[in-house]
Write a protein that binds this DNA or RNA. Structure first.
Lengths: 356, 356
DNA sequence: CTGAAAGCGCTTACAG
DNA sequence: CTGAAAGCGCTTACAG
C-alpha cells in the first residue's frame, strides 16, 4: 500500500508533510471536506478529483488510487447541491398535496416516489389543507429552490401564479382534480391525471337503478364534483328518472327529510358522515350508500356500502411518468389522463329499496 | 414614472438603449433572469440588486424603484438554492418514513410540516418500506443535498452509516421507534420521539385484567415491540399472572388454538388480521382485542375493540421542535421524548370473559 | 494524462 | 449611498 508517496503540492498553505492528518479540521463537528481539500490531500488538481468522482476516463490507476485514498481518509462526500447549481438543474420535484389526513395523498406520493426515485429525483412535499394562499406560498417556495417539476393538487382558486413558472420551464402536472374544477379562471396548459369521476357517477347510479332504486340523492359540492354529478345526471336521464326531485345536494344531517332510498356521496368525509348517521339507531334507517373513494377497513365497516374505487397510487405513478418524460424533452401537447374506476361492495350486504 | 432615465451601463454587451426588452431572452421557455440581468437592466451593480432584494438599508428610493421595476419587468425571482450555497445551509430537512400506506407517517409528516414550515424549512420526504438498504440510500441522497437536519424512522438494521453525517453536523432525530429497538448495534447519540409503548402495554393489560381476563395473548415481534411486551409482562406480573402461559407471540391464524380470552396486538396489521379472523363466523368467536395504534373509522368497525392510542401528529410536532432548537444552536445532551398514550374503546362493546 | 481558468447565481467582506 | 472582487463547491470548456 504505497499511497502518499509522491510530493504533496499543497494548494493553499504550501507543501505539507504530515501524511496522516492533512485536512486541518479533521472530522470536526459541522465541517465538511470539499473537493479542494481532497485535491490538496492527494496532491492533485481539483479537476482530477472531479474526474475520479465522476468516473471520467483518462486518469492513471495510481492517481485514481491516491485520490480515492484521500476521499476515504477525509470522509469526503460530494455536495450535490453545488454540482447541480453548476449543471442548471436540481433533480428535485415538488409535490403539493391537499392534506395528509386523506390517505389518498399518501398513496399518490407512494406512486410518485416509486417512479421518479428510479430516475434520480428527490421529492419536496407539502400540504395545503385546500387553502389557496398556502398552496401558492408553498409552490413558489419550491420554485424558488428551482425544482425541475411540480405535481400539484389544485386547491380552489386561481392558479395564475403558476404561469410564469411554467413558462420558465417548470414541468407541471396536476393530480386528483383539474385546476378548472378547482375554480380556476385561467386556462393552464399543463398535464393532469385524475380519476374518471364522470364514469364513476354513471356506474354508481346505474348500479343503484338496477337494484330498483328510483329516488337517489347526491351529497356533494356541485361545482367541485361536477364531473361526478354529470355522471349521476347522465345515468338518471338514461333511465328516464329526474335527478332534481331526488335530493340533489342533500346534507348528511337531513337524510331523512327526503324520501331517497339511496345516496351517492361525492367524497370520503361525506360518506363517513352518512355512515355515522345511518349507524345511529335514531336515524333514518336503512339506505343504500355509494361513496366516491375507497377507504381503509371499508370491508369491516357496518353498515355496509359500495364504493367507487380508483387507484391513487396509479395516479401518482402516471403523473410521475408524465413528468419524467417531459423532463426528458417531451414537447407534445398537454394531456389529461383519467384513470379508471370500479364499483366495489364493502362491509355488510347492500339494501335494495324494498327489502327483497 | 421616470424609470429607465439614467444611462444603462450594460454589464456584458456594452450599453443598450432599447428600454422595453433589454433582457435578451424575454420570457423564453426555460430561461430565468438572474440578478446580473436585473442589474444591467436597472443600470446598477449586482450588489445593489442584492441589497434591494434583501431589504438591506442604504439604497436611495429612486435606485430602489429602478431595481424593483427591472425585477418586475423581467419576472425575476431569486434562486434560493444559489443563495443557500453561499450561505452554507440549505434550509431543508429530510423525512424518512416507513411506508405511506401507514397513516401514522402521514400524520407525523403533518406535525413536522406545521412546525418546521413556520421556521422557513422545506421538507424532502421518502419512504423505505422498512428496508434498511432503501433507508440508507435515501438518507444519504438527502445528506448529499446537504439537508440541515433529518427525521428518521429507523428500519431494522444498523445505522452506522449515519455517524459521519451526524458528526458532520446533520441534526438528526429518530421518530416512532428508537434505533436500538430497530436492532442497531450502534449507540447513536441522537434525539428520539416515540410513543410510550411500555405504558401502553401496561395500561392495556391492566384494563383487561380489571375486566376479568386471565389468559391474555400477545401478538407481535418480541424484539421490535419489546417495550410494549415489557409493559405487558409488568402488568401480568403485578396481577400475579404468568405471561408465558398465555400465548406469547401468538399468530392471528392460530388464535383458537390457545385458550386466551383476550389479545394485545403490537401493530395495526396484526390488529386488523385479528379483527378479520374474529369477524369470520367459522373463527374462534368472541374475544377482547386491544390494538396498539388507532385507526381511521375504528369507531365504525365490527367487532369492537380497544385501542392504545397515541398522537402521531404530536410526535411530528415534537420532533420538529427538537430539530429547530438543535439547528438554532442547542447543544444539550440528546433526549428521548415519549409521548403519552391512552386507551380508547372503539366500535361495538367489549367482551368480558364470562359474558356478564 | 493532468491542470489553470472561468462560471453556475448568489452573498460576504471590503473600498470608495 | 454604491460597487468591484472574491468565494460558496462544484463543472465546463480549453490548454498543455
Amino acid at each position: 500500500m504505497n499511497k502518499q508517496v509522491s510530493t504533496m503540492r499543497g494548494a493553499g498553505n504550501g507543501a505539507r508533510h504530515d501524511g496522516e492528518n492533512d485536512f486541518p479540521h479533521g472530522h470536526a463537528h459541522g465541517v465538511r471536506p470539499t473537493m479542494k481539500d481532497v485535491a490538496s490531500r492527494a496532491g492533485v488538481a481539483l479537476k482530477t478529483v472531479s474526474r475520479v468522482v465522476n468516473g471520467e476516463p483518462g486518469v492513471t490507476q495510481e492517481t485514481t488510487e491516491r485520490v480515492l485514498g484521500a476521499i476515504q481518509n477525509l470522509g469526503f462526500r460530494r455536495n450535490e447541491s453545488a454540482r447541480l447549481l453548476r449543471t442548471g438543474r436540481t433533480a428535485t420535484l415538488g409535490f403539493i398535496a391537499d392534506s395528509w389526513a386523506d390517505p389518498d395523498f399518501a398513496a399518490v406520493y407512494r406512486g410518485l416516489e416509486d417512479v421518479v426515485g428510479a430516475h434520480g429525483y428527490l421529492l419536496y412535499a407539502g400540504s395545503t389543507d385546500s387553502d389557496a394562499a398556502r398552496e401558492e406560498r408553498l409552490t413558489l417556495a419550491m420554485c424558488a429552490r428551482r425544482v425541475d417539476g411540480l405535481i400539484v393538487t389544485p386547491a380552489m382558486g386561481s392558479h395564475e401564479y403558476l404561469v410564469p413558472e411554467i413558462e420558465a420551464g417548470v414541468a407541471t402536472v396536476f393530480v386528483m382534480r383539474s385546476p378548472a374544477t378547482a375554480g380556476g379562471d385561467t386556462v393552464l396548459t399543463a398535464d393532469a391525471v385524475l380519476p374518471d369521476e364522470r364514469a364513476g357517477g354513471r356506474a354508481a347510479v346505474a348500479h343503484l337503478i338496477a337494484q330498483g332504486h328510483r329516488r337517489i340523492g347526491f351529497l356533494g359540492d356541485g361545482h367541485r364534483s361536477r364531473q361526478l354529478l354529470a355522471g349521476y345526471a347522465e345515468a338518471m336521464r338514461a333511465a328516464g328518472l329526474t335527478a332534481d326531485a331526488a335530493g340533489l345536494g342533500l346534507d348528511a344531517s337531513e337524510l331523512d327529510k327526503d324520501r331517497v332510498t339511496a345516496v351517492l356521496c361525492a367524497d370520503r368525509p361525506r360518506t363517513e358522515a352518512v355512515l355515522r348517521v345511518l349507524g345511529n339507531s335514531a336515524g333514518p334507517g336503512r339506505m343504500a350508500v355509494i361513496g366516491f373513494g375507497d377507504f381503509e377497513l371499508a370491508d369491516l365497516v357496518s353498515p355496509g356500502l359500495t364504493v367507487v374505487s380508483y387507484d391513487p397510487t396509479l395516479i401518482g405513478r402516471t403523473a410521475g411518468e408524465l413528468l419524467v418524460r417531459r423532463l426528458a424533452g417531451d414537447r407534445t401537447p398537454p394531456r389529461t389522463v383519467e384513470v379508471p374506476i370500479r364499483l366495489l361492495a364493502r362491509g355488510s350486504a347492500e339494501f335494495p329499496p324494498d327489502g327483497n
